[in-house]
Measured scan of single mutants.
Amino acid sequence: MQRVNMIMAESPGLITICLLGYLLSAECTVFLDHENANKILNRPKRYNSGKLEEFVQGNLERECMEEKCSFEEAREVFENTERTTEFWKQYVDGDQCESNPCLNGGSCKDDINSYECWCPFGFEGKNCELDVTCNIKNGRCEQFCKNSADNKVVCSCTEGYRLAENQKSCEPAVPFPCGRVSVSQTSKLTRAETVFPDVDYVNSTEAETILDNITQSTQSFNDFTRVVGGEDAKPGQFPWQVVLNGKVDAFCGGSIVNEKWIVTAAHCVETGVKITVVAGEHNIEETEHTEQKRNVIRIIPHHNYNAAINKYNHDIALLELDEPLVLNSYVTPICIADKEYTNIFLKFGSGYVSGWGRVFHKGRSALVLQYLRVPLVDRATCLRSTKFTIYNNMFCAGFHEGGRDSCQGDSGGPHVTEVEGTSFLTGIISWGEECAMKGKYGIYTKVSRYVNWIKEKTKLT
């Protein structure tokens, strides 16, 4: 034993070699072989497995989906700052455009905790909710729209109204504003409101030439003092309507412009014939205590009207009353817009006519005020429907199939267009061939041609 100890002390290297040989010859039971080890760690190889990531292109799944990435790591994937920024906006807080917040056709661009709407022409605001041009839906104005110097929408209202708090709607500024039905039992019968379409306001006024200088022999019209197929109006439903009495009662109609003036057809009036105007009328054979009678003290036909040349060209006249009318729910003026808007309103496509005229061709006159909704007829169809001249200051309205029309005794009465609950004068009943005849239409004086003249002559002093 002493000898062994001496050998170990003198030859430590020998001992180490012996131990190493023993270990190498022993069977290893701690580690699995290569094949079995792979069965336990069965993990798919990654895209760049075996390579240094710093030297390969980034992978979106590896960089940002398996674990949260930084902007720089995302930049490695896209290799483009702009594309990385677009991805980053949604990656950080989701897609803010998912709810489609942009209105009126706006395009949404996502941002971090926010979004941006790219608005089409005519709109602005956070969600493109603000109209900035009158060309689109009248700028959301209830009545009139004008573009300011910086191309912003400025709404306005006709006389007797003021802008509401929203700067879009119009509200009454006087007790009985024009064009409004205020009798409670008839307010439910107000005709369907007309909503502004998209309009090209630059070209809204037709490029028409008034044929002022045409000389033409007097034409022989049949029954051209021209509501057939209409309905009984309720008291106060058309408070701007008046009836004219002269040699015979209810020979023509008219509309209240203001307390002192009536507008009617020029062919209705004769110099030297006494005319009485009755406002607030409903049943011409009954006294309903809503009527107001006034005498006409002055007749002003349009300066281009000449019955000797043509009885229905420039067929418009103004009547001055001896005493002002007292405005109330049964006696209310009709609204008159400017030339541009009167023309736009007419193009809405349908209007209402009213009167006490004959209820059928050569038949009896109506006792109760009649009204009828009539569609506008395109000019080409209008011209083809008659052998008589249709001037540019006239328009056609009615039904091709016949059966409904204005008729004798309705002449001078109103053709009105309702705009968001307020009625505007767009025409004056003038003439036609018979009444409600198939293929024939009622012919009306186009008020847009005469609004400046009306307003100039009827100013209240």
Rank of each mutant, 00 (worst) to 15 (best):
V227Y: 10
P12R: 10
H303A: 08
T389M: 08
K274D: 15
E281G: 11
F78S: 03
E66V: 05
C28A: 11
T389K: 08
P239E: 00
M65T: 05
C145P: 00
H289N: 15
S430Q: 06
G421R: 08
K68A: 05
S107H: 09
E401D: 15
E456V: 07
I443W: 09
K387D: 12
Q96V: 11
H361Y: 11
S255M: 04
D131Q: 14
D405C: 08
I15A: 10
A192R: 05
N113H: 10
A308H: 10
G413D: 06
E259K: 07
R43A: 02
T422A: 05
A279L: 01
M437E: 12
A366N: 15
C128Q: 03
E98V: 10
D198C: 06
E323Y: 07
I262P: 00
R373T: 08
M6D: 13
A192E: 11
T84V: 05
R3S: 12
E98R: 11
E288D: 12
R140A: 13
E433L: 06
I299A: 08
H34Y: 15
E456C: 06
I17C: 08
A337L: 01
E456I: 08
P172I: 05
V359Q: 15
L327T: 05
Y371T: 14
D249R: 09
T290M: 08
L14H: 05
K51R: 10
E67V: 00
F388W: 10
F121M: 10
G122N: 12
I275G: 03
Q143E: 02
K293P: 05
C335P: 02
I136D: 14
G403E: 15
V278D: 03
P175V: 07
T422M: 04
L376W: 05
E231K: 10
E66G: 03
P197V: 12
S217K: 07
S99R: 11
R358Q: 13
F71I: 06
S70A: 06
L372Y: 13
G402K: 15
V228S: 12
A164T: 12
N166T: 04
W88T: 03
G106F: 03
D405Y: 12
A266H: 02
T386Q: 09
S220C: 06
I344F: 13
N213E: 09
I7F: 09
E124N: 10
F196S: 15
A9H: 12
Q96C: 06
I7H: 15
G122L: 05
H400E: 12
S350G: 08
E208T: 15
C268I: 01
L321A: 01
D405F: 11
Y371W: 15
E420I: 06
W240P: 00
Y444C: 03
K440F: 05
H361E: 11
G363P: 11
F123H: 11
P324G: 05
L103F: 07
T16C: 10
E193S: 13
D111T: 06
K45R: 09
I454Y: 00
E72K: 05
I309K: 11
G439D: 06
L24T: 10
E270H: 07
A307T: 07
F424H: 02
I136E: 12
R226Q: 15
G409D: 06
M437I: 13
D322S: 07
R75C: 04
E76M: 01
P324F: 04
T386P: 04
F121W: 10
T332S: 10
C69A: 00
L52K: 05
G421M: 05
N283M: 11
I112N: 12
Y22M: 14
K347M: 09
N36E: 13
V451Y: 06
D200N: 09
A366L: 08
P120Y: 05
G349W: 05
F348R: 10
I390C: 04
T287K: 07
N245I: 12
Q216E: 11
T85H: 07
K45V: 04
N343D: 15
F121R: 13
D405N: 14
D198F: 09
I284C: 05
Y444I: 06
V416T: 13
E434L: 12
T215P: 09
V174T: 10
T84M: 04
G439F: 04
R180Q: 07
E193P: 15
Q57S: 01
G351P: 03
C134T: 03
G106L: 03
G357T: 15
S25R: 08
E72T: 05
G409V: 08
C382T: 02
R226V: 09
E67P: 01
V181N: 07
R3M: 13
R3K: 09
R83W: 05
I297D: 04
T342S: 14
R404K: 01
V181L: 09
K459V: 11
W118A: 13
D232Y: 13
K457Y: 12
N304H: 09
V56P: 01
C108W: 02
L383I: 11
P301T: 10
C145D: 01
P333T: 03
W240F: 03
V296I: 06
N166G: 05
I136M: 14
S184M: 06
E270D: 12
L460V: 05
C335D: 01
P101D: 04
E285N: 09
G402M: 15
H267T: 05
T264S: 06
